[in-house]
Design a binder for these strands. Structure first.
Length: 513
RNA sequence: GGUGCCAUCGUAUAACGGUUAGUACUCAAGAUUUUCAUUCUUGCAAUAGGGGUUCGAUUCCCCUUGGCACUACCA
């Protein structure tokens, strides 16, 4: 009795996958997994003019990176696109023949008609009549199969005249849409226009027709999509009815939109550029317009942080829990805890999530991820054991892996400059004298571990009443070049005896002995 | 303009019709520390406005206001 849960994510390959789209995909995925159902991916490329090369690969790669698994349709495996499932093809541009028969069905049943009005004619009409809408009130004044004889229609088509097929919306009817998140939504059919279902110019259906036909054929049980689709949901209900599919019509859930962090409106690519954060999962090089968009992955985000952050933008669990693994999300997710209002995109919270997840990764993993940054700064083939130690010492100070460089650079490169501010505050008149003496103490160290060094340096400071802070801070400046960094013995430990002593000597030479 | 959706701290959100309106991020202060940071503690800060219903409304209803979406031969 219970219908198998089958949901789909159906993006258009018109550019990089927007972060809001990623969230829609995530919610679909969580819902499917929770119910032991299927997550499908279908490409909606019915607008040939907006196609962007590489966009499809990008979308699939992004989902793969984030761990949003696809059970059926198109997916990426090891850099290759593969199609799985019995309901294909999964690209709408490859389903032309399928749509033909359904267009014909609607035409034959009188739910649709052929219209010859050119885009120019329609534009003129709209300019002439304010609020012009192609519907029951106006369709009889237009050039279509309702006003032209069947013979003439055939002549026009045979002549090669371009036409579209429009859905014939019956007026004066309250159309009910049951939404899982918003409840009952009622719209009167008078405000709906006779939507174009198919265009002969490129022999492709429009979104509305393709979407309904595919969801039906692919046995989709729940349509979970962005709120921007809510106004056209009644049209979709009408289409299901016209096809006679109302009994298996999927349930709808319209998700709140992701809004700009400041001001008003939907989050857009421009906001990311303007405010300095990515709005796309992966970096994207648009071959069509030549633009490059930054991505979360390239900015140093961990996929689990992006998932967690996105999951909580519009959804909240029952308690105060904020950190969720994917498995926990699958368990806890529920459409009736999805909020109804749009969520402003708070980038700061995203940073915090990344910080949290960074701490959860092992030092070895982080060291590996740190490699490209090191290389970019001229550090080739470093000792990975050392990198891991250094990363472990500093990871709690950063939100992103690349930021590790500013925390650890002195481990790799001896300071040549000494920060003015630190010098002013921490390099005292007696510092050269202290450092000269310290050098002797260090050189006489029987071994080079933190305990031993602490055991000989501290008593020496106390004996001369130099003051721990004064000596240690000057020492730190010699090693780091500034008043920052991890615990001093952790630094000497990594640097080793020879390098530590060399750095103190170099500092004395530069800052005056 | 029309239609629809929505409304709790700056942000994301919690609160069977009964709570001192909670939590997290951000911000501020303090503590810890041989530096910087981390960490910990404390603090600032909200039910858009007006009517109802009710013993009692953040919660239910209506109006106002505001925000958003849609209004294509785009999705």
């Amino acid at each position: 009795m219970e219908r198998r849960v089958r949901v789909r994510f159906a993006p258009s390959p018109t550019g990089a996958l927007h972060i809001g789209g990623v969230r829609t995909a995530l919610y679909n995925y969580l819902f499917a997994r929770q119910h032991g159902g299927d997550m499908l991916l279908r490409i909606e490329d019915t607008d040939s003019t907006r196609f962007v090369p590489g966009a499809e690969e990008y979308i699939l790669e992004a989902l793969e990176w984030l761990g949003i698994g696809i059970d059926e349709g198109l997916r990426m495996r090891n850099g290759k696109i593969e199609a799985v499932g019995e309901h294909g093809p999964y690209r709408q541009s490859e389903r032309r023949e399928i749509y033909h028969q359904y267009v014909k069905q609607l035409l034959d049943s009188g739910h649709a008609y052929i219209a010859f009005d050119t885009p120019e004619e329609l534009e003129a009409k709209r300019a002439e009549i304010p609020n012009f809408q192609y519907d029951a009130r106006t369709r009889l004044a237009m050039r279509n199969s309702l006003t032209i004889s069947a013979e003439e229609v055939k002549v026009l088509i045979d002549k090669g005249e371009k036409y579209v097929v429009r859905f014939k919306v019956e007026p004066d009817e309250d159309v009910h849409v049951h939404d899982l998140i918003r409840g009952e939504v009622v719209i009167n059919s008078n405000i709906l226009d006779d939507k174009v279902l198919y265009k002969s110019a490129d022999d492709l259906p429009t979104y509305h027709l393709a979407n309904i036909v595919d969801d039906h054929l692919m046995e989709i049980s729940h349509v979970i999509r962005g709120e921007e689709w809510l106004p056209s949901a009644p049209l979709h209900v009408l289409l299901y009815r016209a096809f006679g599919w109302q009994d298996t019509m999927p349930q709808f859930a319209h998700l709140p939109l992701l809004l700009k962090p400041d001001g008003n409106g939907k989050l857009s690519k421009r906001d990311g550029d303007r405010l300095g954060f990515p709005v796309f999962p992966l970096e994207f090089h648009n071959q069509k317009d030549g633009t490059v968009s930054s991505g979360y992955r390239e900015s140093g985000y961990l996929p689990e942080a992006v998932i967690n952050f996105l999951a909580l933008l519009g959804w909240h669990g029952t308690g105060d829990q904020e950190m969720y693994t994917m498995d926990e999300l699958i368990k806890e997710f529920s459409l009736d805890r999805v909020s109804k209002s749009g969520a402003k995109f708070d980038y700061e919270k995203g940073k915090w999530f990344n910080h949290q997840y960074l701490q959860l990764r092992s030092n070895e993993e982080l060291a590996e991820m740190f490699l490209p940054t090191l290389k970019a700064n001229g550090i080739e083939n470093p000792d990975m054991q050392m990198v891991a130690i250094v990363v472990g010492l500093t990871k709690d100070r950063v939100n992103f892996v690349p930021e590790l460089w500013e925390q650890t650079n002195f481990f790799f490169v001896a300071p040549t400059e000494y920060e003015e501010k630190s010098l002013k505050k921490r390099w005292k008149e007696d510092s050269p004298k202290h450092m000269t003496e310290l050098l002797e103490v260090l050189e006489g160290a029987p071994s080079w571990d933190a305990e031993t060094l602490d055991g000989i340096v501290m008593p020496w400071i106390e004996a001369h009443e130099y003051g721990v802070g004064i000596v240690m801070n000057a020492f730190r400046i010699c090693l780091v070049g500034a008043a920052r960094g991890p615990h001093i013995w952790a630094i000497t430990d990594v640097l080793g005896k020879a390098e530590t002593i060399a750095r103190v000597r170099a500092a004395l030479k530069k800052l005056g002995a």
